[in-house]
């Protein structure tokens, strides 16, 4: 008799289980199918802004969108109370960057330091995704030309005033909060101070961001400048810290840096300030994105 009960119970059990599993199993099958068939997903939002502090990031303005950026640095903190700790002085860079495609962007800018104009191009070579590409890579090219008049140097023609920086930007978003970027760079200056100074200067930048909330992150970058390249001037590696605050189409960056210059040759090869001496420039970068896409 007990054998019969067992037989009786089995199909009942099976039925009961099936009824309970019915709804979720349909969704589970669907989710499994999605997992199998979905292609690699782009990893986006590696950085909030197009620069860590001064160093360009792999981020560019979106296709057909225009970014206006104001970069601003006050004077040195160690200038004391008379100069209101640097706040009495300021240097500024205005920039416009435009996304020609998802991968290619171009930009122009003008800095008050040396009254320098600059033009840049950034192209994304590799895009990090969640399946088979562990990092993103971009190539960045910058040309600068300064227009500051030096009456004592009449020989300064346009060629002598021009410099170039080429950088390879290698970045990986490790977690939702942490992204790091390695930035080997090569700066070429058409004219340098003395014959001992090198025209071709190599640098290696390392930087990153750590999100502290969904809309804020702490940024840092260090640009190593190997010795014996710039010898006539006492220069130091550029070290900058920043705080990103993102609000809709704006990104605000509050920054502290030992560099006053905000474009390639200036912060990479002409940083005379040192953190330990209090040569710290406080400032900010503000960017605003405008959408250019026609409906």
């Amino acid at each position: 008799m007990s054998k019969y009960y067992l037989l009786l119970c089995l199909p009942l059990l099976v039925l009961a289980q099936r009824a309970a599993a019915q709804d979720s199993s349909m969704l589970r099958l669907l989710n499994d199918s999605l997992d199998v068939n979905a292609g690699p997903q782009k990893v986006t939002g590696t950085f909030k802004a197009t620069q860590i502090v001064n160093t360009p990031t792999i981020e560019s303005p979106a296709r057909h969108s225009l970014q206006f950026i104001i970069m601003h640095r006050f004077g040195k903190l160690n200038q004391g109370a008379y100069e209101l700790f640097g706040l009495d002085n300021a240097s500024i860079r205005f920039g416009l960057d435009y996304g020609l495609s998802d991968r290619l962007s171009v930009g122009i800018g003008r800095s008050s330091v040396d009254k320098a104009f600059d033009g840049n191009i950034k192209y994304k070579l590799l895009q990090q995704n969640d399946k088979n590409m562990p990092f993103s890579a971009s190539i960045y090219g910058l040309i600068t030309n300064y227009t500051q008049r030096y009456t004592d140097k009449p020989y300064l023609n346009a060629r002598y005033r021009t410099g170039y920086t080429t950088e390879l930007l290698l970045a990986r978003k490790f977690t939702r909060a942490l992204s790091l970027q390695l930035t080997p760079g090569w700066t070429h200056l058409n004219l340098v101070g003395t014959p001992e100074d090198k025209n071709d200067i190599f640098t290696l930048g390392i930087g990153g961001r750590m999100k502290i909330t969904r809309r804020m992150s702490i940024n840092a970058e260090y640009n190593w400048l190997p010795k014996n390249q710039v010898v006539s001037v006492d220069v130091h590696p550029s070290l900058s810290l920043g705080l990103d605050i993102e609000t809709g189409g704006h990104v605000f960056q509050l920054v502290f840096s030992n560099s006053e210059g905000m474009v390639g040759p200036y912060y990479l090869t002409k940083t005379t300030g040192q953190w330990k001496n209090g040569d710290i420039f406080f400032g900010f970068n503000i960017s605003r994105a405008f959408n250019w896409k026609k409906k």
């Binding site: 986006t44 939002g45 979106a62 296709r63 969108s65 969904r214 993102e246 809709g248 189409g249 994105a289 959408n291 896409k293």
Partner: peptide
């Protein structure tokens, strides 16, 4: 707008 899409995801 791509920026909106990024903010939506992030």
């Amino acid at each position: 707008k791509e920026l909106m899409q990024q903010h939506f995801n992030e």
